[in-house]
């Protein structure tokens, strides 16, 4: 099937029968792709549909593809009986803060590494690159002990700071800054501009695209982060959405509609962010994978 990819670009004039065959074949492939795409999103559809059914309809046989009766009580239940609103606020605040700080710290550090010729620069860049390979998950215990010694367990600071230590954005920015023509910066410097002015007046505006892309990807990653918030937060009220909703799921009784209502509520921000900024997300993903 893969061979048909570039049939349209082949220059050989095909015979009429093969044209019809290949059109048919193309149609089949298109249909197959669309069916697969629909199957891929179906579980999400199913979650949404389940969340608006009454409890007894969720477990009825045969299952109903479209609710016979719409029942939004699961949503009102979770909003009234869980701190989900609080978790939302926690997630928004921490994810925004992490995104802002990651971008700011990375931009500054990458600019120094890329544009300023100072003693120890190569050495510092190697140090940053080395961290590229280090999995923070392997040192959860010392990280927890350290955060605890600082008195930051169960605090938003303790939740945020370890997420600022990943060097990936520094490396990406350095690559982008490296590609900016030297003349631009040098001209400004000759005019007496400080390095800060050069960075924020020239380099940052020139790399606005990657900043937006990285910002969105960082935001989604921070929003979705599970392991560290799960470990560092004790208080249910201080949890972020992805960790918090696992607390509702442990509820007893028939709770499928409530569980799905929770899942849908938790998924809304990142899904909306993706649907609006699809192209930016794609760009950001490419950058983080090392493909520009």
């Amino acid at each position: 099937m893969t061979a048909t990819i570039n049939k349209s670009t082949t220059t050989k004039p095909p015979a009429p029968l093969s044209v019809r065959l290949s059109r048919l074949w193309g149609g089949v492939i298109t249909a197959l792709t669309l069916v697969l795409a629909a199957a891929w999103v179906f579980p999400m559809y199913w979650a949404v549909v389940t969340s608006v059914k009454p409890d007894d309809e969720t477990v009825a046989a045969p299952p109903t593809l479209w609710p016979q009766k719409f029942d939004f009580s699961s949503y009102s239940y979770i909003f009234q009986n869980s701190p989900i609103v609080r978790w939302y606020i926690n997630s928004v605040l921490t994810a925004v803060l992490i995104t802002f700080l990651v971008l700011l710290l990375s931009i500054l550090c990458a600019y120094a590494l890329s544009q300023i010729n100072f003693r120890g620069r190569t050495w510092l860049y190697w140090l940053v690159l080395a961290g590229f390979m280090i999995p923070f998950q392997a040192s959860l215990i010392p990280l927890f002990i350290f955060i605890n010694k600082l008195g930051l367990v169960n605090s938003y600071t303790g939740l945020v700071v370890p997420q600022l230590a990943a060097p990936i954005a520094v490396v990406i920015y350095k690559q982008f800054f490296d590609q900016v023509p030297h003349e631009l910066g040098d001209a400004a410097r000759i005019d007496g501009a400080s390095e800060w002015r050069v960075l924020f007046g020239i380099f940052l505006p020139l790399n606005w695209g990657i900043t937006v892309s990285l910002g969105i990807v960082t935001f989604i990653a921070a929003w979705n982060n599970f392991l560290w918030p799960f470990i560092v937060m004790n208080d249910t009220a201080k949890l972020t959405i992805p960790v918090g909703i696992t607390q509702i799921q442990s509820a007893y009784g028939v709770a499928y509609a409530k569980t799905m209502a929770t899942a849908v509520t938790a998924a809304v921000p990142t899904v909306v962010a993706y649907l609006i900024f699809q192209r930016r997300v794609t760009e950001g993903v490419m950058a983080t994978a090392g493909l520009k």
Binding site: F144, N148, G151, V153, N154, I231, N234, D235
Partner: peptide
């Protein structure tokens, strides 16, 4: 962990 960190209920 809350007892260890002194952040108990």
């Amino acid at each position: 962990t809350s007892v260890v960190s002194g952040q108990t209920p």
